[in-house]
């Protein structure tokens, strides 16, 4: 982590660190596999629709498209396992390592450290959700302030992190339907089928609207956010989405004087 400067300057503008190259590569693999799975899976889910057959034929038809789907699924499942190992290693090395170095590692601090990882939901998120709705419904003029990971980003994170373990194993069962029925009852395949198709619908509907709103459609992001490529947020994005973190980082770097007032999506607001 120390390889990345929390604040860098380029062309006189300030940028704030978010994702390491390692994480960005994982994201690229994740989204390319998900898109591949979606376009080889949804024509099957909606086989009766007029667009289904042309799309499926384009993806290789009934012979090749299932193979692509399974290959992409295997990669995604592999990525899931890899990512799990990745955050466990990070957690042990950084969080627990720090505690150990300070001689404070015990069961209680360990659990606490686990729940203070940046992607794990906590009480602050609950308050942030309430704050957000208060602001959106015009009950306050103070936009919500988020720390390093906002609750919406945690949703974005857990969409695939909950989705893959539902979709993946169900998909594996459906893939090896002949072999697995030596051990497990056929009705499990019925369950796997519902899990696979309905969870896929949730994932895709969420991806195409909620996540893409966050990074593509939103007025200040349109046509696309760049953080997934550069790993750094602009100051405006930082102020809009992570004002608490912004304040903290700026203070840590002795830049209190240059802190800008909060705004919401590029629009200055009056206090």
């Amino acid at each position: 982590m120390s390889r990345y400067e929390p604040i860098i300057y380029k062309d006189g503008k300030r940028y704030f660190y978010r994702f390491s190259v390692h994480q960005r590569v994982q994201h690229v693999i994740l989204f390319s596999m998900v898109l591949l799975l979606a376009i080889t899976g949804f024509p099957l889910r909606h086989a009766e629709e007029p667009w289904a057959k042309p799309l499926y034929d384009f993806m290789g038809g009934t012979d090749l498209a299932p193979l692509i789907h399974r290959a992409a699924g295997t990669v995604l499942l592999g990525l899931f396992v890899y990512h799990t190992i990745y955050w466990i290693v990070l957690f042990i090395r950084n969080d627990l390592g720090q505690l150990k170095a300070h001689g404070q590692l015990n069961f209680k601090t360990g659990i606490k450290a686990f729940f203070s990882q940046e992607m794990v939901p906590n009480m602050r998120d609950f308050h942030d959700i309430v704050d957000a709705w208060k602001y959106l419904l015009y009950f306050t003029n103070r936009p919500p302030r988020h720390e390093r990971m906002s609750w919406r980003e945690k949703f974005d994170y857990f969409a695939p992190y909950w989705g893959v373990p539902i979709l993946g194993p169900a998909g594996v069962l459906l893939w090896w339907h002949d072999e697995v029925t030596h051990f497990i009852p056929g009705i499990v395949l019925n369950a796997a089928y519902i899990m696979h198709t309905d969870e896929a619908l949730l994932a895709v509907l969420f991806l195409f609207f909620v996540h893409w709103y966050n990074v593509h459609y939103a007025p200040e992001k349109f046509p696309a956010a760049t953080v997934w490529l550069t790993g750094y947020l602009t100051e405006d994005e930082m102020i809009h989405e992570h004002y608490s973190e912004y304040l903290r980082v700026m203070t840590e770097h002795g830049l209190e004087d240059e802190i800008r007032p909060q705004h919401f999506g590029g629009q200055e607001y009056e206090l």
Partner: peptide, 16 residues
Amino acid sequence: LMGFTVWYGMFMYPLI
């Protein structure tokens, strides 16, 4: 975008 959001809500309904 607001229009799109409403449309998406209606688009999703039969899917769900």
